[in-house]
Amino acid sequence: MLTVNMLEAKSSLSRLVEAVESGAESEIIIARNGKPAAKLVPLEGAKEKKGVRLGLLAGKYPPMSLEDLNSTNDEIAALFYGSDD
């Protein structure tokens, strides 16, 4: 548990919020004249909403080679540009 004075908290709020948000600090106490006045803690569930993890669908679809992926290029092009039939 880190304790900082009001002036330090005011001048480095972004750094303090990042420390709590990242889990480097579980909570930060902000003191006024040496007496605890406020507590900075992370919001519940905020960590899950921070970003999107890549690879969430890994293993949910069958593997596909580059040839398989490109095999429908002509069909897709015909749908966009019309067929030459």
Results as ranks from 00 to 15, higher is better:
N33I: 00
N33Y: 03
G34F: 08
G34P: 03
K35N: 09
P36C: 08
P36V: 03
A37I: 00
A38D: 06
K39P: 05
K39V: 10
L40Y: 02
V41W: 04
P42C: 07
P42S: 05
P42K: 00
L43N: 05
E44K: 14
E44C: 04
E44W: 11
G45R: 08
G45H: 08
A46M: 13
A46G: 09
A46R: 09
A46K: 06
A46V: 11
K47L: 11
K47D: 02
K47A: 12
E48G: 08
E48A: 15
E48T: 11
E48N: 13
K49H: 03
K49S: 09
K49T: 05
K49D: 02
K50W: 06
G51L: 06
G51W: 15
G51C: 01
G51A: 15
V52N: 11
R53H: 12
R53N: 14
L54E: 13
L56Q: 15
A58D: 14
A58M: 14
A58C: 02
G59W: 03
K60V: 11
Y61S: 12
Y61Q: 06
Y61A: 13
P62Y: 06
P63W: 01
M64K: 06
S65P: 00
L66R: 12
L66K: 10
E67R: 07
E67G: 01
E67D: 10
E67I: 06
D68Q: 15
D68L: 10
D68I: 00
L69V: 13
L69D: 07
L69H: 07
N70Y: 09
N70G: 01
N70S: 08
N70E: 12
N70L: 13
N70F: 06
S71A: 13
S71L: 04
S71H: 07
N73I: 05
N73A: 09
D74M: 04
D74H: 12
E75G: 03
I76Q: 05
I76P: 00
